[in-house]
Amino acid sequence: MTSVFDAAGNSVGVTVIELGPNVVTQVKSVDTDGYDSLQFGFGEKREKSTTKPAMGHFAKAGTTPKLKLKEFRGFDAASKGLGESVNITDVFSEGETVNAVGTTKGKGFQGVVKRHGFGGVGQSTHGQHNRLRAPGSVGASSYPSKVMKGMRMAGRDGGGQVTTKNLKIVKIFAEQNLLLVKGSIPGHKGAIVIIEKTSKL
């Protein structure tokens, strides 16, 4: 993340996303696969660490081995051929809103305050000794005599898929394949994310 100034002179916190080059590695159509979609490849991968079947797949598209493959529907399948790449400006424009789908940073074993946003006790005196961030009661007594399923408790936090919605596109550097969105997105630096158009209501 960094920050840039907008036209009004406000400093805007932005995330810089490298969006591409995304190369078409497979074209799926109703005739062959039952549905229309395009498979894109992103990032470079060493030939040595690519399996032979995968190498065949990339050779068919006439590209070098790609790090990540992902299928997208909603493209006009006939518009792009194998090995062609899609530019940012074909899909997105400045001022639009997008969603970012990614895997969040793993947080390890966390308590309920961080994991579920519990308020904690809110007091450090009046007999709280060591119960500042405790969850409190987990249910009633003799009835139901059990803890209900899905009770929010401490446990492994982070490392899951999260969608950050309605991120405004601040700027696009088409030549460098860079997209600047306002705000943060899931994941660590250098993480791979999916940028999709915000669905209209």
Partner: peptide, 13 residues
Amino acid sequence: DAIQFVQQEMLTK
């Protein structure tokens, strides 16, 4: 670096 590039590009002298 992408972030360095953006900062350089957005810098108004």
